[in-house]
Simulated scan of single mutants.
Amino acid sequence: MITSPSFYRTIHKQETGKAVVLGHLVKRLMKKHAAKIIVCTAVFALLFTSFLMIGTYASGNHPAEAAVNEQVVTVHSGDTLWGIAQQFTDGKQDIRYIIYLIQDRNDLQSSEIMPGQRLIIPSI
């Protein structure tokens, strides 16, 4: 039989109230795993705010209105970005770069355009 005073105090504390033991266990766990808890909380906060930002910026796929030095073109049947870019090049720049500028200005994810679509041609 164990008769050390520390053993008696441990048993005595457990008998006086489970809340004391539970509080003691929580404190021990917090001290032991503090770094893990802090890292997990930081990762959770980072992911949560990232998802909020993605939801905020992914909702609008509409470009800003055309500026004074930009032109607006309505796409007709059979038009391509290549053909539209050729109309607005001076022959000194690469047409692929002009296409990139048009796609970037109009928030286009691919080179597909539809008849009736309005494209903003940036100043080149």
Rank of each mutant, 00 (worst) to 15 (best):
L25G: 13
L25E: 14
L25I: 15
V26H: 11
K27N: 11
K27L: 13
R28G: 15
R28Q: 10
M30C: 14
M30I: 12
K31T: 11
K32A: 12
H33S: 05
A34G: 10
A35P: 07
A35K: 15
A35T: 12
A35Y: 13
A35S: 09
K36G: 09
I37D: 05
I37M: 04
I37E: 04
I38D: 11
V39W: 14
C40P: 08
C40T: 14
T41V: 06
T41Y: 04
T41N: 07
V43G: 03
F44N: 11
F44D: 03
L46N: 08
L46I: 07
L46Y: 07
L47R: 12
L47I: 08
F48E: 06
F48T: 11
F48K: 01
T49A: 01
T49Y: 02
T49L: 07
T49S: 08
T49K: 02
S50W: 03
F51H: 15
F51Q: 13
L52A: 08
M53Y: 08
M53P: 09
M53L: 14
I54D: 12
G55F: 03
G55M: 07
T56H: 15
Y57A: 09
Y57C: 00
A58N: 13
A58K: 12
A58R: 05
A58H: 09
S59T: 12
G60T: 10
G60W: 03
N61V: 12
P63E: 03
P63S: 09
A64L: 01
A64S: 08
E65M: 00
E65I: 00
E65Y: 07
A66K: 08
A67W: 01
A67E: 07
A67H: 05
A67K: 04
V68H: 14
E70I: 07
E70T: 03
E70N: 03
Q71K: 12
Q71M: 11
Q71T: 09
V72Q: 11
V72T: 15
V72Y: 13
V73D: 11
T74S: 09
T74R: 11
T74D: 04
T74G: 04
T74H: 04
V75E: 10
H76F: 07
H76N: 13
S77M: 01
G78L: 00
G78I: 04
D79Y: 01
T80K: 08
T80C: 03
T80W: 09
L81Q: 06
L81P: 05
W82M: 15
W82Q: 15
W82A: 15
W82R: 15
W82T: 15
W82I: 15
I84K: 05
A85R: 14
A85E: 08
A85T: 14
Q86A: 08
Q86L: 09
Q87L: 13
Q87E: 13
Q87G: 10
F88W: 02
F88L: 06
F88D: 04
F88T: 10
T89M: 06
T89Y: 10
T89K: 10
D90M: 02
D90K: 03
K92W: 00
K92R: 03
Q93G: 00
Q93A: 13
D94K: 02
I95C: 06
I95D: 02
R96C: 02
R96D: 14
R96K: 11
Y97S: 13
Y97H: 14
I98C: 02
I98T: 05
I98L: 12
I99D: 04
Y100F: 05
L101C: 07
I102G: 01
Q103T: 08
Q103H: 02
D104M: 05
N106H: 05
D107P: 00
L108C: 10
L108V: 01
